[in-house]
Design a protein around this nucleic acid. Structure first.
Length: 313
DNA sequence: AGTAAATCCTGCTTGC
DNA sequence: TGCAAGCAGGATTTAC
């Protein structure tokens, strides 16, 4: 559920409340949240290696690409580029700042006890990772230079494409990737190696805004359509970010504990059977439709986003 | 090689 | 009332 805007909200929270602090102790309550952590020391278990590397490390400025969030360790005087703590929220992951005395959440997975935050002595003592469905995960990964990156990215995330809110994102790159692919348009939008940060909800919102059908063949996309789609994606995500990251699903809570996605702002997703708002504004009545798609759902307006008929499947 | 389906996981909702 | 099936979905794994 958390997509780019929600992850960015978490990143900002981490920057405010955790950057510059030292990890004093780490407690792993459920090792499944570390299933993707590969020990740097092969004689250690993932939990031992994870806690060992983190204990005593100082957290730097958090960074993000698409739905991937990572916190580089602050380099020690003795040189070498340190790794980063990578956080992926999956669909139900939360990062919470809590007092140590606060009761454990039902789905608490990892607790980080943090040293003082010098700019704010009242900062909560713990950063917690809570995740009901365990699609999220934490790991420690070395940072490497990616050829298209302005900075460095975790080695485990080098395959992730730039996201549409990165400065200098090239619309032409998206156009070329869509044209060279033989697939449906929404499938391509959800492929994080094509463009990153888009999930099921904002994919439907952006397609609605751009008036494109989700199953439109990517190899027939025109340059103008690709530009229109990218603009729609950026518009939807900027609006979400402005709203503070939203989630009608109470599973998603941002780092400050406030709740998530902005349900009222959704124009299309989840509105099956309800009138398309753009059609309604034009005096027409068209019901939003829902169809099964790749183990989930797609929502679209049959008038605004008609299925292509001219052989462009 | 490139695309698509299957899979992981839990809790809420729906149907019989 | 109770149980079972259905649904939600990000990203990796497996299959074609």
């Amino acid at each position: 559920m958390p997509e780019l805007p929600e992850v960015e909200v978490v990143r900002r929270g981490v920057q405010t409340w955790a950057a510059g602090r030292t990890v004093e102790t780490v407690t792993v309550h459920d090792s499944r949240s570390l299933r993707r952590h590969i020990p740097a020391d092969p004689t250690r278990t993932p939990v031992e290696d994870f806690t060992g590397q983190l204990t005593g490390a100082t957290l730097g400025t958090p960074a993000r690409r698409g739905k991937y969030l990572w916190i580089p360790f602050v380099p020690a005087c003795s040189g070498g580029t340190p790794p980063a703590l990578l956080i992926h929220l999956g669909m139900s992951g939360q990062v919470l700042m809590e007092e140590q005395r606060a009761p454990a959440e039902k789905h608490l997975k990892v607790t980080f006890d943090l040293g003082p935050l010098y700019k704010d002595a009242g900062a909560p003592g713990q950063m917690r990772f809570v995740d009901q469905r365990i699609f999220g995960h934490l790991l420690i990964s070395p940072l490497v230079d990616a050829d298209h990156a302005s900075g460095s990215v975790p080695a485990v995330a080098v395959h992730i494409a730039q996201d549409p809110l990165e400065s200098g994102y090239e619309a032409e790159t998206l156009f070329r990737r869509l044209r060279s692919r033989r697939s449906g348009l929404k499938r391509a939008l959800l492929d994080q190696t094509v463009i990153s940060g888009i999930g099921n909800i904002y994919a439907d919102e952006a397609l609605w805004l751009a008036k494109l059908h989700y199953a439109r063949r990517t190899e027939t996309i025109t340059r103008a359509e690709a530009m229109r789609l990218l603009s729609a994606v950026q518009q939807v995500m900027r609006a979400a970010l402005e709203a503070g990251g939203t989630s009608f699903d109470s599973l998603y809570v941002n780092v400050n504990g406030a709740s998530g996605y902005f349900a009222r702002s959704l124009e299309c997703y989840g509105r099956a059977g309800q009138p398309c708002r753009r059609c309604a504004a034009a005096g027409l009545t068209t019901a939003v439709r829902r169809e099964a798609f790749a183990n989930r759902s797609s929502y679209w307006c049959p008038r605004c986003q008609p299925r292509p008929r001219n052989g462009r499947w």
